[in-house]
Design a protein around this nucleic acid. Sequence first.
DNA 1: CGACCTCTTGATCAAGTTCAACTTGGGTGG
DNA 2: CCACCCAAGTTGAACTTGATCAAGAGGTCG
Lengths: 251, 251
Amino acid sequence: MNIVSRPGRLGTPCLACPLRLKPAFRDKTDDEIRFIQTMKVDHRFMRAGGDIIHPGQEDAELYTLYSGWAFRYKSLPDGRRQILNFLLPGDLVGLQASLLSAAEHGIEALTDVELCVFPRRRLWDLFERMPTLAYEVAWLGSREECMIDDNLTSVGQRSAGERLAALIISLYHRVDALGLVANDSFAFPLSQQQLADALGLSLVHTSKTWSRLRREGLFALSGGRLTLLNPRLTARMAAAYEQITAPRPLI
Amino acid sequence: MNIVSRPGRLGTPCLACPLRLKPAFRDKTDDEIRFIQTMKVDHRFMRAGGDIIHPGQEDAELYTLYSGWAFRYKSLPDGRRQILNFLLPGDLVGLQASLLSAAEHGIEALTDVELCVFPRRRLWDLFERMPTLAYEVAWLGSREECMIDDNLTSVGQRSAGERLAALIISLYHRVDALGLVANDSFAFPLSQQQLADALGLSLVHTSKTWSRLRREGLFALSGGRLTLLNPRLTARMAAAYEQITAPRPLI
DNA sequence: CGACCTCTTGATCAAGTTCAACTTGGGTGG
DNA sequence: CCACCCAAGTTGAACTTGATCAAGAGGTCG
C-alpha cells in the first residue's frame, strides 16, 4: 500500500523513456531531456489504492505517471467524495499541489503505478532555465483544466446515461492517444464505486445505468477490458461533440 | 454589445494600476511591471452580455479583467450550458484559450467590463524573458483549476441548498480579497438563470431554494447587493471547510 | 468454509424537473 | 402620463430521475 522506492536505481533513463515514442508526446531536444534527467530524483512504485498525494499535504512532490492509472479527488468533511479527473501514463501528477502551497485535493493510485519523482522546489529552476519546458508544463496544466471543464459540464448538465457515455468516450480517446487501444478495446480498471464518484451518481444508479447501456449494445466489459461496440452511437449518446485531448504541445 | 476599444489610449499605466493596491496582489518589481506594460496593447470596454471569447475561437487574445465580472461556460450541442467559473477583477481571462490552440469554452461579460489586452503570441516571450511572471501565470492557472475542482465537487456531491451556500461563500471570499466587501455585503450581479447554470440546477428549483435560504436568514439581497446575514451558518450549510482563494502567488 | 468485497436487482422514497400561470418592475412608445 | 411589453422572478402541481434501503449473487482469499 505504500511507496516503494529503490534508491540508486532511477529506472529507465529519460532519453530512452518508452513514453517518448507514443503519439501523444512532443519531440524534445537533447538539452531538454538532459534537464529532465537531472531533475528526476527517484522512480517509485506504488500499489493500487495508495495515496500519491493526500489532501492538505504541503510538501507534495511533482510526479510524472510512468505507468498505471490514478485519479485526483476531493472529499467533503462528511465523507462524500468527488473524483475530479483520471490520470494516465505520461500525465503530470501534482502540478497544482506544487504550485499552490498545499494540495486542495488528494491523488490516489487506481492501479499499481510507477512514478518519476521531481522535487517541487526544482520546478522553479525549470521555469528559469528551460522556458520551453515551462511552457509545456503550463500547457499540460491547461489541458487538465480543460478535461475538468468537461467533467463539470457532464455532471452539471448530462443525464446519468449521457455521463457514462461521455466518460467512456473520453477515456477511450486518451488511451488511444497512448497507442493502447486494440480492436476498439482497452484495459478498464475502474470499479463502479469509482465511476459513481466521478459522475456524481449513487453506486446503485451507476450500476443500473451501466448495465442498461451494455444491454443496449454500446459496449462490453470482460477480463478487465472494455470494448466499444458502437463508438458512433456512444458519442451521440453522450450529447457531446468532441473535446480535445489530442496531442498538441506546441508553442 | 460589442468590444469598444480606444486606439491610442491604453487606460491607466500598469505602474499605477489600482489593482496593485488590493490585498490579493503580489508585489512586482519595476522590471516586471515595465514588461507587462510593453505587452499590453489595448484597453477595451465591453457591455454586459458580450462575448469576450466565443467557443471554438482560435485566435483569442489573453486578457486581464480590469473591472467587472465575467464567466467561463461550456455549451452542449442542444443548448444546455454549464457555467464553469466566475472571473473577478484581476483575474486572467483566456489563458487556457491562449495555450491550447482553440478555446474549448466561451467567456462572457456578466457586467459591463474593462479588459487589458495582451496578444497571445507574446505569452511565449513572457515565458522566455520573465520566468517570475511565467511562474505566476502558471500559478494563476492552477488557482483557477482549484476553483473549478470546487465547483465540480459542489455540483457532483452537494444538495441544491449546499451548492448555493457554497457558491455564495466562495464569491464572498474572493470579493473580500479585493477589498470590495463592506458590512458583509457586496455587489452581486448574477441572475437566477446564471446561478442555475453554474450550479447544474433548473431555474425553478434555483429560485425556490434561493428564497428558502433567504427565509432561513442566511442572506438578503437588495439593490443588487447581497448581504451575508450569517456567514458562519452559511459556511456550515455549505458542508465545506474552506478552500483557498487566498492570495499567495509566491515562488 | 466463512468473511468479505463488488456487483446486481427490486421496492420505496425524495430531490429536483417540467409545465404553467401569475407577479413585479423597468423601459418604450403612443 | 399611461398603456403596454418584456425580462426576471415566484409559486403551485404533476411528474421523473436518481437516491436510499434491502436482500441476494458471485468471486476471491485466507
